[in-house]
Simulated scan of single mutants.
Amino acid sequence: MKNDVVSYFLELVSIDSESGNERAIVDKLKKDLEELGAIVEEDDCASKIEGNAGNLYAYFPGTINKKPILLCAHCDTVVPGKDIQPIMENGRIFTDGTTILGGDDKSGIAEILMAIKQIKEKGIEHPPIEVLITVSEEIGLLGARNFDISKLQAGFGYALDTHQVGEVVIGAPSQISFQINFYGKEAHAGVEPEKGLNAIRLAAEAIALMPNGRIDFETTCNLGIIKGGTATNIVPGLVTVEGEVRSHNKGKLQKVCEEIEQAVISTVHKFNANGAKASFHFELKKEYEAFLIDRNAPVVTLAEKALQNLHLSVDIKVGGGGSDANIFNANGLPMIIVGTGMNNVHTTEEDILVDELYRGTAFIEELIHLYAEE
C-alpha cells in the first residue's frame, strides 16, 4: 500500500470499477485493509445484484473500549470509467477528458485508509473502527441495500461521498423512479399511416403535461430516458419513458407522482375519445427514504468539532442526492455524508485538488481521535 494519500488515490482511480464490475478494486482493497490489520469479509452481494464483487466489511480492533466508529464509501464509478489515466498538474488531478476521474468515491476510500494507516503508524490509541466499502452504489445503492446491517456494531457512521471537505450533509430526499410504456399501433408509414397510432406522439403529448425540473425548494422531477421506434417507415407502436421524483416531503413526492400518472391517463383518454386504441403501463419504484438528522446529534457535532480543530470551514446542509446514508438511516443507524474534495462528479470534467485529499485525510484522523477522547 502506498504511503501518501495522493499516490494511493492515483493508484485506485487507475483500476477499472464501473458499477457491477468492481472485482479488481475489491481485491485490491481487501489486501490493503488486511495489511493495515483489519479483519475483512466480503459478502455475497454479487450473486444478488448480478455483479462480480461483494461489499467489503473491515473491522479494526481498538485499543479503547468503546463502540466502533463507522466509515463508509463506495468503490464503483459511473461510466465512462474504463482505462482512466489521471493527470496531476499544479496541485490538481484530472483526466484527458475522455473518462471520469473516479474521485466519486475513491477519494473517500483513499482518505479513510490513509487516515487509519497514519493513526497506526503514530501509535495513537483508538476505538474499534468499522470500514464498509460498498459496490454498485451508483446504480441504485444496490450494495448497501443488500448488506447485512446486523453486522455493524457502531452507534453512528459517516459516508464519505460528497464534495468539498467541510461539507456536512445531515439530510437527503426520498426518491421514486418511474417507467411508463405508451402503446400505440404499428403501421407502414408510407402506405397506410392512418391505420397506425404513433406512440411517440402519444408520449410527447403526455410529457408536455407532466411536472418537470425544480418543483419547489425540496422537490425535483426529471424525465431522463425515452426509447421508442424501430424505423422511419414504421409508425411506432411502443415508447418507454423513464424518470425520477425526489423530495424531502413525503406528501409532495406522492403528489408529483400522481400528477405524472394523471398526465398519462388524460392523454390516453383524449386519443381514445377520437377512436384510437391507445394504452399504457405505469410503474413506480421507491428507491430510498429521506432522512434528516438533528443538527445537535453527536454524529454531527463530532464532525463539526473535528473540522473546527483543523481550522476548516464547516458547511452543514441538507442535500439533494441519495447515497448509502439513506439506506443506513432507514435501518436505524444514524449516518451523515461528509465531503472528500471531489468536483464535477459524473462528468469527464471531474477533478480534485491535492490539498483536498490531504485535508480529507486529516479530517478522518481527527474524527477518530476526537471520538476516542469522548
Rank of each mutant, 00 (worst) to 15 (best):
E259Y: 08
G54L: 03
L70R: 02
L209K: 15
K120R: 15
M114Y: 01
L310F: 08
R92G: 04
I316L: 08
Y371K: 09
E35M: 12
N198V: 02
S19T: 15
G157T: 09
V299R: 04
P298K: 11
A362K: 13
S19F: 03
E205S: 09
S47A: 14
G321M: 10
T220P: 05
Y158T: 04
A159S: 14
T219S: 12
K66F: 06
Y183V: 00
L302Y: 09
Y158R: 08
T134G: 08
V338K: 09
E42I: 11
S279A: 06
A208T: 09
N274S: 12
N344E: 14
L10F: 02
Y57N: 02
A53T: 05
I25T: 05
I336H: 03
K31I: 12
L132F: 03
T240R: 11
K48N: 05
D83P: 01
V354R: 03
H311K: 12
I129K: 01
K255R: 12
E350G: 02
A58G: 10
N55M: 00
I265M: 04
V264S: 03
A172W: 00
V264G: 02
C257I: 11
K285S: 12
G140C: 06
L209W: 07
G81H: 05
L12N: 05
D4E: 10
A115Y: 04
F156R: 09
T134N: 09
Y158K: 00
A58L: 06
P68F: 00
N90C: 05
N90D: 15
A303W: 08
H311F: 11
I293E: 05
F282Q: 01
M114V: 01
T348V: 15
E365I: 03
L12H: 03
N344A: 14
A24R: 14
M335I: 14
E50K: 15
V26I: 15
Q175Y: 08
P127S: 09
E137W: 09
F9H: 06
G341A: 10
I265C: 00
N3K: 14
K252C: 01
I49Q: 02
K270Y: 11
I352Q: 09
Q118F: 07
A306P: 01
I225V: 15
R145N: 15
A278E: 00
Q254W: 04
V300S: 08
I260R: 05
K151S: 09
D351L: 10
R23D: 10
Y8L: 13
I176P: 00
E218V: 14
G54C: 05
D351A: 10
G275W: 04
A189C: 03
I260D: 05
I260L: 15
S174E: 07
E218Q: 13
V13C: 02
V165Y: 06
K82L: 13
R359S: 12
V235Y: 01
G213C: 03
P80D: 01
Y59V: 10
G171P: 07
G251V: 11
D294Y: 04
T230I: 13
A297Y: 12
K30Q: 13
N331Y: 08
A372C: 06
D216I: 04
L160M: 14
N212Q: 13
N198I: 02
I225H: 01
E261K: 15
L56K: 00
I64R: 09
S323A: 14
V264R: 02
F282T: 05
L307H: 04
K285Q: 12
T99P: 03
N65R: 13
E261H: 13
D351C: 13
D43M: 08
D294G: 11
K66R: 13
